[in-house]
Write a protein that binds this DNA or RNA. Sequence first.
DNA 1: GCGACAG
DNA 2: ATCTTGTCGC
Length: 226
Amino acid sequence: MPAWPATEADALAEQDRLRTLVDPTGPALSDGAFVAGVDVAYDDERNVVVAAAVLVDFATRETVEETTAAGPVSFPYVPGLLAFRELPPVLDALGALRHRPDLILCDGYGLAHPRRLGLASHLGVLTGLPTAGVAKTPFTFSYDQPGPARGDWSPLLDGAEVVGRAVRTQAGVKPVFVSVGHRIGLAEACDATLALAARYRLPETTRRADSLCRRALADVLHREAR
DNA sequence: GCGACAG
DNA sequence: ATCTTGTCGC
């Protein structure tokens, strides 16, 4: 396993290498599947980053398992290179899961990335597992407003290229931006996102991972302060 | 050329 | 991401 890139030049080269390994197609989830949500929280002052992985039963939306992992911040925030900042602790948290996820939903992008290798794609290749990205903002991409009903969607475009979908997960709420990561198709990734966002704008996986990593970060800081 | 830009 | 109170609404 190659060392984690330390410079932007190394990171760009690593993206080029991983991009050739991505499979942006794959089947829909079935009942009985487990979907993992991952997210991270930072304290750059204290050089601490904490990741959380929450495994959810796709059919019932109940939490099956939760893990966290803490570590030092190993890469600065550079738009386009987010994966190098977020993935080290995420890989640790996923590795602590006792069950293997059938899909991992990330907070951010996959194919919808300036260089076509967002953190969801990156994580998919590193783990070999199906992944997709669900982002809260359109980044640099364009889209027409999707219809008003839950389930309505419109193409997310990078110029003329379709890189994902703006998906309305709840009526009267801003859309989320779904893009494929690895080993799942775009329509299938959107279906999974919609199914997990039955009540709120963001899928339960993302919501639970978000709150868990914040709590875990607070715990770590509390512990270090004494 | 410069700035903006997922989290 | 993070700094941050109360408040409107279901």
